[in-house]
C-alpha cells in the first residue's frame, strides 16, 4: 500500500505532502543531469542540484524543469517527480500512489496534460489536478465554501495567481507570469546596469530574500546593506559591491507593479457583492513572494484594502493540496482530471 501524495509542483520549490504525515519534503525544483557517454543520467535532485546551478562543467546540466509554473522540460520533470516519489516511499518498490498536483489557474489544457502525464509516467496510479489559488486559499484557512468572497494572491516562483473565491469555486482568477524568478531577473539587470556587475541567479535570489523590499525605506533611511559578488563587465575580473535596500526596492518596482496591476484588474472584475465582502476582510497573500518585505503595505496603499500575509505562506499551496487529499470525499469538487 503506497501512501497517496499531494505535490505542489512549483517553479522554485516542490513540496510533497503525504497523506497522514503532512509535508515531508520541501526541495528546490532543480535536477542535475550528467551526460555519461551520450546517455543522460540524473545526478542530483533538489537542494543538492541547486548548489550546482550555474556552477556546472560541460557534461553536467543543472536544469529547472518548470518555468512560469508549467513544465518546460517534460522528461526532466518526470525524473524529478519519480525521484520525489521514491524518496518519500523510502525506496520501497512498486509504489504507485494517487497524486494530487496543483496547476496554475491560467495554464492551458496542454500544460495541464503535460503535468498530469509526467506524474503518471513517474508512477502515479491516478493523478488529480487542483487549481493553485484554490489550494492556496484552502491552505491559508480561508472559508472558501461560505457564500462570502475571499481574495487570495499567491505569488509563486513563476506565476502570481489572483483569485476571488466563493462557495467553493473560483469566481474570478487571473494568472500573471510574474513571480520570484522575475524579481531575481530584475535584480540581476539592475546591478548589471548600475554597477556593471554580472551576478548569478542564486546570488540575486539571496539578495532578494535578505534585503529585498517592495517599497523603499522611509525618508532619510537607507535600510540594510549587503555585499554582492559577481563578475565585472568592464574588465572581467570578479568583484563585490554593496547594495542597499533602497536600490533593491527600486529594481523590484517593475515586477511589484505588475503584481499590483493584476490585483487591481481582479478587483475591477469582481462582482459587487463579493467586492463588499473583500472590503471587510481584505486580501490574503500566500507564496514565497508574499514574504517580500513591505509588499503587503504596497498592496494596501494601492488598493485601500486590508492586506494580510497568511501563516506559513510558503507552504499554503502544499497544505491546501494536502487537505484536498485528506478530505478527498468532501473536497472532490475542487479536483479535476484531464481525462
Amino acid at each position: 500500500m503506497s501512501a497517496d501524495m499531494a505535490i505542489d509542483l512549483g517553479t522554485a520549490n516542490t513540496l510533497v505532502y503525504v497523506k497522514g504525515r503532512g509535508i515531508v519534503l520541501d526541495e528546490p525544483s532543480v535536477v542535475a543531469i550528467a551526460d555519461v557517454r551520450g546517455k543522460k543520467q540524473v545526478l542530483a535532485v533538489g537542494e543538492e542540484a541547486k548548489q550546482m546551478l550555474g556552477r556546472t562543467p560541460g557534461n553536467i546540466q543543472a536544469i529547472r524543469p518548470l518555468r512560469d509554473g508549467v513544465i518546460a522540460d517534460f522528461e526532466v520533470a518526470e525524473e524529478m517527480i519519480k525521484h520525489f516519489i521514491r524518496k518519500v516511499h523510502n525506496r520501497r518498490g512498486f509504489a504507485s500512489p494517487m497524486i494530487i498536483v496543483c496547476v496554475p489557474s491560467g495554464s492551458t489544457a496542454v500544460e495541464r496534460r503535460a503535468i498530469q502525464e509526467s506524474a503518471e509516467s513517474a508512477g502515479a496510479r491516478k493523478v488529480l489536478l487542483i487549481e493553485e489559488p484554490m489550494a492556496a486559499a484552502i491552505g491559508a484557512g480561508l472559508p472558501v465554501t461560505e457564500p462570502s468572497g475571499s481574495m487570495i494572491v499567491d505569488i509563486g516562483g513563476g506565476t502570481t495567481e489572483v483569485a476571488v473565491i466563493s462557495l467553493g469555486g473560483i469566481v474570478y482568477s487571473r494568472s500573471v507570469r510574474v513571480g520570484g524568478d522575475k524579481m531575481d531577473e530584475a535584480i540581476i539587470s539592475y546591478i548589471r546596469r548600475n554597477h556593471n556587475l554580472l551576478i548569478g541567479e542564486s546570488s540575486a535570489e539571496r539578495i532578494k530574500m535578505d534585503i529585498g523590499a517592495a517599497a523603499p525605506p522611509e525618508e532619510y533611511e537607507e535600510g540594510p546593506y549587503r555585499e554582492v559578488k559577481g563578475r565585472d563587465l568592464m574588465n572581467g575580473v570578479p568583484r563585490e559591491v554593496m547594495v542597499g535596500q533602497r536600490q533593491i526596492s527600486e529594481s523590484l518596482a517593475e515586477p511589484v507593479s505588475a503584481i499590483v496591476e493584476a490585483v487591481k484588474v481582479a478587483l475591477e472584475n469582481t462582482p459587487p457583492e463579493l467586492a463588499a465582502d473583500i472590503v471587510d476582510k481584505g486580501i490574503v497573500l500566500t507564496g514565497g513572494g508574499a514574504l517580500l518585505y513591505r509588499l503587503d503595505q504596497v498592496l494596501r496603499d494601492a488598493t485601500g484594502l486590508p492586506v494580510v500575509v497568511a501563516e506559513d505562506a510558503l507552504q499554503c499551496v502544499a497544505l491546501g493540496t494536502g487537505r484536498a487529499l485528506e478530505e478527498m470525499k468532501r473536497l472532490r469538487n475542487v479536483l479535476t482530471s484531464m481525462y
Binding site: A140, G141, L142, P143, D280, K281, G282, V284, D296, P306, V307, V308, V309, A310, E311
Partner: peptide
Amino acid sequence: LPGNAYALGFLRT
C-alpha cells in the same frame, strides 16, 4: 473576527 485566517492575519499585521 471574520475568520481564523483573517484574525491571525490582522493580528500579525
